[in-house]
């Protein structure tokens, strides 16, 4: 069986989503279905995206982040990211995510805040 593209980790009411190396349209296809399922079955207050493995991202990545942000915002929840390198930061900034979603250096910081 192929390795899952996204891996999920629950830390209390925080859902940590480990992103793949290449965050493009192809790899983003199942994220909505998977997160909808997890949100329906668990009380999630915060969603944390882990970019530490991610080397490539295009506007598909911006699309899924924006949609998760809107989804969490509607229920009074939060979204945070950590582990983004310079390339990913550049893409996040151009995509307008920089101002919307807080960035942290480590998973612990992203979860704790």
């Amino acid at each position: 069986m192929a390795e899952p593209v996204f891996t999920y980790e629950a830390k209390g009411q925080v859902l940590v989503i480990h992103l793949p190396r290449e965050l493009d349209h192809h790899n983003c296809r199942n994220l909505r279905y998977e997160t909808d399922l997890l949100l329906a079955e668990n009380y999630i207050r915060k969603m944390v995206f882990d970019f530490s493995r991610t080397e490539f991202m295009d506007s598909s990545g911006i699309g899924i982040l924006l949609n998760r942000y809107k989804q969490m915002d509607r229920s009074g929840g939060e979204v945070a990211i950590y582990g983004a390198g310079p390339r990913i930061l550049r893409v996040l900034t151009i995509g307008g995510i920089g101002k919307l979603v807080p960035r942290y250096d480590s998973k612990e910081a992203a979860i704790a805040e």
């Binding site: 983003c28 506007s59 598909s60 699309g63 899924i64 924006l66 809107k70 995509g95």
Partner: peptide, 12 residues
């Protein structure tokens, strides 16, 4: 209509 696309392809 799924909300998953940012509409930023050409801007990128």
């Amino acid at each position: 209509t799924t909300g998953e696309r940012s509409g930023m392809g050409f801007s990128f």
